[in-house]
Amino acid sequence: MDIYDVLMRDFPFLLKGLGVAIVLLVALLLIGFVLGLSICLVKLYGSKSRLVQWPLIIYERVFRGIPIIIMLFIFYYGISGIWDISAFGAAILAMGLRSGAYQSQIFRSAFQSVPAGQMMAARAMGMSNMSAIRYIVFPQAVRHAIGPWTNEFSSQIKETSLAYVIGVVELTRQAHYIITSTQGNVLTVFAVVALMYFILNRAGNSLLYAFERKLAVPGFEK
């Protein structure tokens, strides 16, 4: 049986691995989104006390400064010693927390790009701080965040492949299984895997660009 027959036979396993990678991607991005936005709002509009601000700064610096593969080892092999956690759960937790640190920077830049006068005008009209953020600042900031967020999306797609080092059976590990069973054909198998990652990346970015165009206000971004 040649490699192409093997690929046709095992392609469903690659699709299954791709599905696992997509679930991992969506979960970690959602965790990162909630954390990143929350941290951004607290740092910009919350208490300026060091007891509040410094833990957030330390969190961002730690998770942005340590390689993701080290974080995966820490969260899986370290946490599993005191708490029963699956490899998939450890990957979501490690990558989600790391994404939150990066997304907080994306949202901070986006919120700071909105002129301060917008907030002052909303407050002068009698709006509460939270109402002004929700109805005035956030709708403008999110338009500025989509562009940088596409980079985070693309980066996280590629980083999901590292989850295989702690045993998550995603696309890359499925490819390793096929290579092991055929005792070779590395180039062909990984070429197919690379194409699948590329298609996923392009499809996701296309949706984000379409969303950006839908939210665009003529003259606003320019």
Rank of each mutant, 00 (worst) to 15 (best):
Phe88Ala: 05
Ala90Leu: 09
Leu93His: 00
Ala94Asp: 04
Ala94Pro: 09
Gly96Met: 05
Gly96Ser: 03
Leu97Tyr: 06
Arg98Glu: 13
Ala101Val: 00
Tyr102Phe: 11
Tyr102Pro: 01
Tyr102Ile: 08
Gln105His: 12
Gln105Pro: 10
Ile106Thr: 01
Phe107Asn: 02
Arg108Leu: 07
Arg108Asn: 01
Ser109Asn: 07
Ala110Glu: 00
Gln112Lys: 05
Gln112Arg: 02
Ser113Gly: 06
Val114Ala: 00
Met119Pro: 04
Met120Arg: 14
Met120Pro: 07
Asn129Ser: 14
Asn129Leu: 14
Asn129Gln: 14
Ser131Asp: 14
Ala132Gly: 06
Ala132Phe: 06
Ile133Val: 09
Arg134Pro: 12
Tyr135Thr: 12
Phe138Gly: 03
Pro139Ser: 03
Gln140Asn: 09
Val142Glu: 02
Arg143Thr: 04
His144Ser: 07
Ala145Glu: 03
Ala145Ile: 03
Gly147His: 01
Gly147Ser: 15
Pro148Trp: 01
Pro148Met: 00
Trp149Ala: 09
Glu152His: 05
Phe153Ala: 00
Ser154Asp: 07
Ser155Arg: 10
Gln156Asn: 15
Glu159Met: 10
Ser161Thr: 08
Leu162Met: 10
Val165Leu: 08
Ile166Glu: 00
Ile166Leu: 04
Gly167Ser: 11
Gly167Ala: 11
Val168Gly: 02
Val168Pro: 03
Val169Cys: 05
Glu170Ile: 05
Glu170Gln: 06
Leu171Ser: 06
Gln174Glu: 11
His176Asp: 15
His176Cys: 14
Tyr177Arg: 15
Tyr177His: 14
Ile179Trp: 10
Ile179Ser: 10
Ile179Leu: 15
Thr180Pro: 12
Ser181Val: 15
Ser181Asp: 14
Gln183Cys: 10
Gln183His: 13
Gly184Met: 08
Asn185Ser: 11
Asn185Val: 01
Val186Tyr: 13
Leu187Pro: 11
Leu187Ala: 14
Thr188Phe: 10
Phe190Lys: 01
Ala191Ile: 13
Ala191Tyr: 07
